[in-house]
Amino acid sequence: MSESTTAATDLTSHYTAQVASDLERNIKEQERISGDIAALQQQLAALQHDHAVLLNMQQALGAAPAQPEAEAPAGSTTVPAPRRKRGAKEAAEQPKRGRRSTSAARRAPGRESSGRAAGKAPARAAGGAKAKGTSEGPKLVDLVRGHLAEQGEPRSAAEITRALGAAHPERAVKITVVRSTLEGLVARNRAQRSKQGSSVFYSAPDATAPDTGEGDASAS
């Protein structure tokens, strides 16, 4: 009974000494890290001070534009933008310009009406010319056939749509219309369709492929 008590006492003493040693080492480590943090904070404060001084010198020399106020460190000064003064001056002169234009319009109402009519007429003429030029452009089916003839390998409907859209930015080329046009060409033996996995590709027909003789659809 006395031997077990002695063993328990020795074990307790061993753990007590171990815990005391670990506790002392933990305290020393905390003190070391606290010292490092304090030193780093001092270095950071010195760097921030130097940055503010250098920034003020740079702004005074005019070597670079001032940084935004949100990014400028503490202690830096911000030079007011001169364009604010110009904006205030323009805002003060704007009512005067409005009164001058109103007086001129009252003095010559006939000229203003004729000027508006003259401006609308060229605009309508330009719009009509643009619409006429679009209607006289090549058909989508011709563009698709020409693109397939230029390619050396099969292309998907998405690739053909992107290529035609880049070549003809004035046209609204949609993949649904391009796919319908391709299927129509395949039905008339003017294009070939192949599959690679789940993807469908189209290519120009072989030289020996028969032609059904049907007219091309006028897709636009």
Rank of each mutant, 00 (worst) to 15 (best):
4 S>L: 13
146 G>Y: 00
95 P>G: 01
23 L>A: 08
131 A>D: 07
134 T>E: 03
13 S>R: 15
144 V>M: 04
168 H>C: 00
106 R>S: 12
193 R>V: 11
216 D>W: 15
105 A>H: 03
72 A>Q: 12
54 L>F: 09
54 L>N: 09
53 V>D: 08
104 A>C: 02
147 H>L: 12
108 A>N: 13
33 I>F: 05
192 Q>L: 10
27 I>R: 14
214 E>F: 11
16 T>Y: 10
113 S>R: 09
95 P>E: 02
176 T>L: 05
53 V>L: 12
145 R>W: 07
191 A>F: 02
188 R>K: 12
141 V>Q: 11
27 I>N: 07
63 A>M: 09
202 Y>A: 04
146 G>E: 03
137 G>A: 15
24 E>F: 09
93 E>Y: 07
67 Q>I: 13
138 P>E: 07
104 A>N: 05
121 A>G: 04
22 D>F: 14
109 P>Y: 00
22 D>W: 15
68 P>F: 04
12 T>D: 09
166 A>K: 07
64 A>Q: 14
202 Y>P: 03
11 L>T: 06
119 G>Q: 13
5 T>A: 14
127 G>I: 02
121 A>V: 07
125 A>W: 06
129 A>C: 03
11 L>I: 05
34 S>A: 15
110 G>H: 07
94 Q>S: 09
24 E>N: 12
67 Q>A: 13
8 A>D: 06
21 S>C: 08
87 G>F: 12
187 A>M: 10
217 A>G: 07
21 S>R: 15
142 D>H: 10
52 A>E: 01
1 M>H: 03
108 A>F: 03
92 A>I: 04
